[in-house]
Design a protein around this nucleic acid. Structure first.
Lengths: 122, 122
DNA sequence: CAGGATCCCCCCCGATACTG
DNA sequence: CAGTATCGGGGGGGATCCTG
């Protein structure tokens, strides 16, 4: 326990050139991965439940439009968070689910989400 | 290991009404908390380093404008992720740092950020 | 059923200029 | 130094209509 690490010392100590850089920030990619209003909710419902069809996702994620859902699904498939299973036939049947990485991300974020419980209500 | 949990079984089993809901999705608030292009980078530099002054943040987070930085800082202060320390005087001196919750979030996200290493390069 | 196409809007952000 | 004010652009999103 060094008193030099105290808040007052840190704030008043002039010898603190900021050596850290945001250039190698690993959170930047994570941010782009999760960009979009609905991405986290897609990750959530697929992670909590099971693989779902397009229509089910529309139902479960209340308020999302078909266009945006398609966009998000395409993007998340592209980045490797989800897979897409297309069964030919009439009517068509398309199912989406989390990849291994997607599942990891869901689990991690779920744990992280509990942190917000410590914050005052909005 | 039950074969009923296999992918084929899940996908072809019709008895799967989606009972999960996105209504209680705890990731929604997390998403709003981290919304904005620069929020994660602010969290990153403050979490990796030490409390920084406004000008230092502008320098370290390359490319951010004063306006957006101010917006993000105000918002993150409002949500309780960072604190703001204003020292009167000429020139003025304003320092920002992570709160306890902000630090927790940074640490969690940092661990989570490593998951993206498993994804193919963009 | 699972989308594609189109139009519009709003919010986030960038740039510039100015101030206590 | 640490912001504020203002203008303008772009992309994500909503609503509606259409299709394989």
């Amino acid at each position: 326990m060094n008193s030099d690490t105290s808040l007052q010392s840190i704030l008043t100590n002039p010898a603190h050139p900021p050596e850290i850089s945001a250039k190698t920030c690993p959170l930047e990619r994570l941010g782009r991965l999760l960009r979009g209003t609905w991405t986290l909710q897609v990750l959530w419902v697929l992670g909590e439940g099971r693989p779902l069809r397009f229509g089910d996702l529309r139902t479960v994620i209340e308020g999302i439009s078909a266009k945006v859902l398609t966009e998000r699904l395409r993007f998340m498939e592209h980045t490797g968070l989800i897979w897409r299973c297309h069964e030919e036939g009439v009517p068509p049947k398309v199912t989406y689910g989390l990849t291994e990485v997607g599942t990891e991300l869901h689990d991690g974020l779920k744990r992280l989400g509990r942190i917000t419980d410590k914050l005052p209500p909005e």
